[in-house]
Write a protein that binds this DNA or RNA. Structure first.
Lengths: 201, 201, 201, 201
DNA sequence: ACGTAAGCGAGACGGTACGTCGCGTCTTACC
DNA sequence: GGTAAGACGCGACGTACCGTCTCGCTTACGT
């Protein structure tokens, strides 16, 4: 189902897939992913229902492929050298700009309207790209208490982004990036220090 | 559909509802809420499908009522006087003990297998009871930056609990409560102070 | 799918099945069995398509059951004592009257508009009841040349009935029965005699 | 769709049509005409489905054209002068030899596996060629009772041929031709005589 | 002999019917 | 009144064929 780069894609296929994606996004924003039917999508895209199945297994498959297309924009990013409360990594800003660009989609996806399986996957993707920003900083931690701190930091960061998206991005990406950077730095420099970690004492 | 306290419940009705609840919980743990069907539940409970609809509107209604029964155990709690890094509020520990007691159910509910609508509701409930522990501490914050911090703290705390449940409660509730208490205190005393808040500077 | 005699049939079920049968017959006469769709039938019967599948596997199953109902009228008939050119067996007349009664249906079934599998089955049924009239006469023939004669007689008789039905029964059943009786007698007394049979000489 | 004799056929076209016919016959014998799909045929012929539609309208068209090719072998035959119980018309033998040659195909076509529309057509063709053998004999009958007798004789003759094909031609064509000749003669000389005809008396 | 018209492979597309599944409503009979 | 049994309308599902179409590649034919 993912023959993106097999020679040149048939223009009819490209058109069809784009129309389906477009209809899918619109309808997801309008009524939520769970309430969507394949019929809804194809009617909006003004094509036959059977055509949908020639390109996607089901609506989950469509979403997967769409997310893949979005996330492919962030492959091969590298984290900055070190965590620094005063220096915001540029690719963190890029990530937030990306979220802002597809704000409607991500807001719906990360909030209450999306199937949990997919939210899970999207969080994982986010995690991967998000933490690549700080990969070197986190890589040398002891794993036992780190696991909790890491997951909490992730949850908190996602929470911040969701909060930001739900309120239609009240701050510019740079400002939120600064906040997140400081938050993560604080998590690192205070409560995450093993000798101060209340767990394991 | 919520005739819980109408005088004394007919014993047949009580039996039926308990069997349905039991079947519901088992199946939710086994295959996740989203994959459940009413037929699944009634077959497991060995009763006719139409009987289900005599008691519940649908599986969401059953879940709601079940959660209500669980959460009724935590009504009317009060938060402690002040946030204190060295004194863990007892009702925070109680809450975690409650989560531990119904660990299977909450793990499934809060992780990937639950319908987002319900997860939303459950998080709200958690939030309500969770933050009642710290209500007085948080009540005097300025609302602009507070909103973000509050939500992030909530997301992080939920993340910690989910992490704890997903790993089958690797620490006793008291230890996690201590960690959470310190975490929230740190959020309060450092990054949340308005003059240090990078947003708005 | 054939619970005809389980206690008393639910009146709703009875009504539904009768409506479906009625619609089926009408449409078969109108446009032929092969061109029928389940949707056609249920639309004509003014009910939901899924209701059809609660009673029948498919249109073939409906036809089978309908034919069973028709043929059950002729179970347990006995053939006459001997073939006699001047005495027409009464049950042959009964059979033709039956065909006449459901003339539209049988005409369509036995002519070009019906699926061959079904025509086959109907011919077999016809054969069974038709030749029970002459069972004793035919039972003592030598089997080698008899097989051919028997099949040819059957084909000819069916041909006569089809001819009669296609022309909207130009003669009364009694007259056709007389003709058939004489035809079968002639087949018996002349060309079927082994010593005159050109095959095997 | 029938450009058989336009100058010389393109060898590619000829090859394609032959492959399709071959696949069609094989599959008809294997699983019956009704169960065939165009996809089946083209897959067996190892060509693209769209190529099929370049040559035929549908599977019925293919069958028609194939039958035309077979029957063209019997055009322009003449019946013998008179019906004679001792002299078998040579073209009747030829016809049976033809059936024998394509025995598999005709057996399937004339038995239960063929679409009724086509069987109808094939019977008509058979009738045409079959009775051309006896055209002069039958041409002077009074039409009223003749119609029935004619049809019955046809049905009986077809029945005999089907019987013969279904049992893999247990007799040589000459022997069956003799039987048929005598049968038709008997039909003519006895039961068909108007004054003995029980119908109309 | 070679350019051009055809046959052909590949496959997208709009359609229509299929048989299945789950929903929520309803009725009847039993206890 | 609660329950079992189950018919029914509804509507989405994913599949299978159908017949049409467009696009390039290859192959035969005509001048």
């Amino acid at each position: 189902m993912t023959q993106k780069s097999e020679a040149v894609e048939d223009p009819r296929v490209h058109r069809t897939r784009k129309l389906l994606q477009q209809a899918f996004i619109e309808l997801t924003v309008e009524k939520g992913f769970a309430a969507l039917t394949v019929r809804d999508i194809t009617e909006r895209a003004m094509m036959n229902r059977s055509t949908f199945y020639r390109h996607y297994l089901d609506k989950y498959d469509l979403l997967e492929q769409y997310m893949d297309e979005l996330f492919v924009l962030f492959e091969d990013r590298e984290g900055i050298a070190n965590l620094n409360p005063n220096e915001v990594p540029s690719n963190l800003i890029d990530l937030l700009k990306h979220f802002q660009q597809f704000g409607d989609f991500y807001r719906v996806m990360l909030t209450a309207k999306i199937d949990p399986f997919v939210e899970q996957r999207l969080r994982q993707k986010t995690e991967k790209h998000f933490f690549s920003c700080f990969s070197q900083t986190f890589s040398d931690r002891d794993s036992s208490s780190f696991d909790l701190s890491y997951n909490v930091t992730l949850a908190a960061s996602c929470g911040a982004i969701v909060w930001w998206l739900e309120r239609e991005q009240p701050y510019p990406p740079e400002q939120l990036a600064r906040w997140l950077n400081k938050f993560i730095y604080d998590m690192y420099s205070s409560s995450l220090k093993p000798n101060e970690n209340p767990i394991g004492e």
